[in-house]
Amino acid sequence: MHGLVSRDLLRDRTVFVSGGGSGVNLAIAKACASVGANLVICGRTEEKLRAATNELEGCGAQAAYAVADVRDPGAVAAALAVAADRFGPIDALVCGAAGNFLAPAERISSNGFRAVMDIDLLGSFHCAHAAFEQLRQTRGTILFVSGGQSQMPFLHQVHVAAAKAGVDQLMRSLALEWGPYGIRSNSIVPGPVNGTEGMRRLAESATEEVWAEMVPLGRFAEPEEIGTMAAVLISPLAAYVNGAQVVVDGGMAMSGSSAFNRAVAAAAPAS
């Protein structure tokens, strides 16, 4: 991210990232670290969080982690208390913890559907709700990590579609309701991103060539490209951006999901 924006863009600001131990969320944390932010990340696996914190410190950031499952509001509140104790009230919250898998709607269990709703949607609410008082003090910002499934249907993604659509409406509602406190709320919608766990799972049915067919730019995003846009949306450069769904997908939303759907249908076992 260096060379694109000032290294001091987020100097002395504290960013809390749920699901920050890996993937796109870690890329967002690294981008924020590279421009001066303090970072606190949370997730369920301490080993992963410890390694990610070391990476963030390698970017020159002051960083800490807290083990927390976003489905547990008490654990989320405790993780945010760690952030406040270490750095003071947070300036930005990134709600990134998510789950995904391919499953036909007629076969997915209630528990499977609920798991994704609980992590993506309820977990985002828990984080935002627990962070409110800190964000009110700093007139801070919330960035939700959404997905293309909130905009258009993908085969075998009914659970994710419902969860991400809910996340975007949660974002819009908070932008309206908490705007008077000076709290901005936005969401970022990444397209296919190299090297992430979500892409590894989806690639079992839809190859890189299929995704490239769907994306007008003809390639996956690099994690740093998503991280850079996220850092800008968190920063004062976006001080008047509120209630926006910012799509960073190489144009995929314009071409639709038909290529993906054909690949998934072809790979699906017979009923």
Rank of each mutant, 00 (worst) to 15 (best):
D85V: 06
D85M: 05
R86Q: 10
R86W: 11
F87W: 04
G88E: 04
G88L: 08
D91V: 03
C95F: 02
C95A: 15
G96T: 05
A98G: 11
G99N: 10
F101T: 10
L102D: 09
A105Y: 15
R107Y: 13
I108M: 14
S110W: 15
S110E: 15
N111Q: 15
G112Q: 12
R114M: 09
R114L: 13
M117K: 10
L122Y: 13
H126S: 03
A130H: 06
E133P: 02
I142V: 14
I142D: 07
L143W: 01
L143P: 01
Q149W: 12
Q149A: 15
S150D: 06
S150F: 11
P153G: 15
F154Q: 11
L155M: 15
H159K: 12
V160N: 12
V160K: 11
A165R: 14
G166K: 08
Q169D: 07
M171V: 09
R172D: 04
R172A: 14
S173K: 01
L174M: 13
L176Q: 14
E177Q: 12
E177V: 10
R184S: 02
N186R: 04
N186F: 09
S187F: 05
S187Y: 03
P190S: 07
G191V: 06
N194Y: 13
G195H: 05
L202Q: 12
